[in-house]
């Protein structure tokens, strides 16, 4: 039986895994070798975070469950990641903006979790926080660089905002398991907006006014993209059930 803690851990794990999966698509295809390596580092960090969450969740689910069973044998409707994580990479602007939205959110969230009541979750969050601190620095700088770079890069950032903004509201709309975890969404949102405004101002980017937000990811209602991600990711486990790799 999945308790609220299990569901919450799966939500954190799924988000980190899907975002890692997306970022890893850049590996070998980055705009320059140095940044290819940088985005891949972020992908690896996120993968590591997801494994920590899955492993913890697996111990709660039962003795026969493994991190791989949770990652590879759950369906689209069971995945609880944010919609934002599954959105396509698009161009470099879209990727760094998605990363910035996430890193700013994860930074604030992990900061809270590291002093939360659950010791194991707190330890995972404390370790992840160090990684996310760097992701936030890296992605903030890229948002500023592209926003305040050339006319073309500025336009591409505007387009990226237009594409991704509507998925950011989901961060702060609590699913049932988040309510049980007593995550203070309101204070998260205020702090996240503060960071966003500071970075966007430096990037000469407008603060989006559109307030209509897409939701559903946290409770398993996803965009069409997730099915394809899982089909690709899970195919070996699904084709050869029970095989060890």
């Amino acid at each position: 039986m999945h308790t609220y803690l299990t569901n919450y851990l799966l939500h954190l794990a799924d988000t980190a895994l899907i975002l890692s999966q997306r970022n890893s698509e850049w590996c070998g295809h980055g705009p320059i070798l140095e940044q290819d390596i940088a985005i891949t580092n972020i992908s690896l960090d996120l993968l590591g975070q997801s494994r920590n969450f899955y492993q913890y969740a697996a111990t709660l689910v039962g003795p026969d469950t493994t991190e791989d069973a949770l990652a590879y044998l759950r369906t689209e409707r069971e995945y609880k990641n944010h919609l934002l994580a599954e959105q396509p990479n698009g161009d470099w602007a879209q990727t760094v903006l998605r990363q910035f939205f996430f890193s700013a959110y994860q930074y604030l969230l992990y900061e809270k979790l590291q002093s939360g009541p659950d010791e194991q979750l707190a330890a995972i969050a404390a370790k992840a926080l160090k990684e996310v601190t760097y992701h936030l620095r890296w992605s903030s700088e890229w948002v500023i660089r592209l926003g305040d770079g050339t006319e073309e890069s500025h336009q591409r950032m505007l387009k990226a905002i237009d594409e991704l903004w509507r998925y950011t509201g989901e961060f702060f709309m609590a699913a049932d398991y988040e309510k049980e975890m007593a995550v203070d969404m309101a204070s998260l949102k205020a702090a996240w907006m503060k960071k966003l405004i500071a970075v966007f101002e430096e990037a000469t980017l407008p603060i989006p006014e559109n307030t209509f937000m897409q939701t559903g990811g946290k409770t398993g209602i996803h965009t069409e993209y997730l099915g394809f991600i899982l089909a690709e990711m899970q195919y070996l486990q699904r084709t050869y059930p029970g095989a060890a790799w």
């Binding site: 890893s24 494994r51 899955y54 070996l236 790799w245």
Partner: peptide, 27 residues
Amino acid sequence: GNWISRAPSLKRKAILIAKVQDEGGHG
């Protein structure tokens, strides 16, 4: 790199990402 998205376990995925990234570093 074209197998990163399809790696059959999370451990193998991490190893493969790190390895392909290393190759970028070596380049």
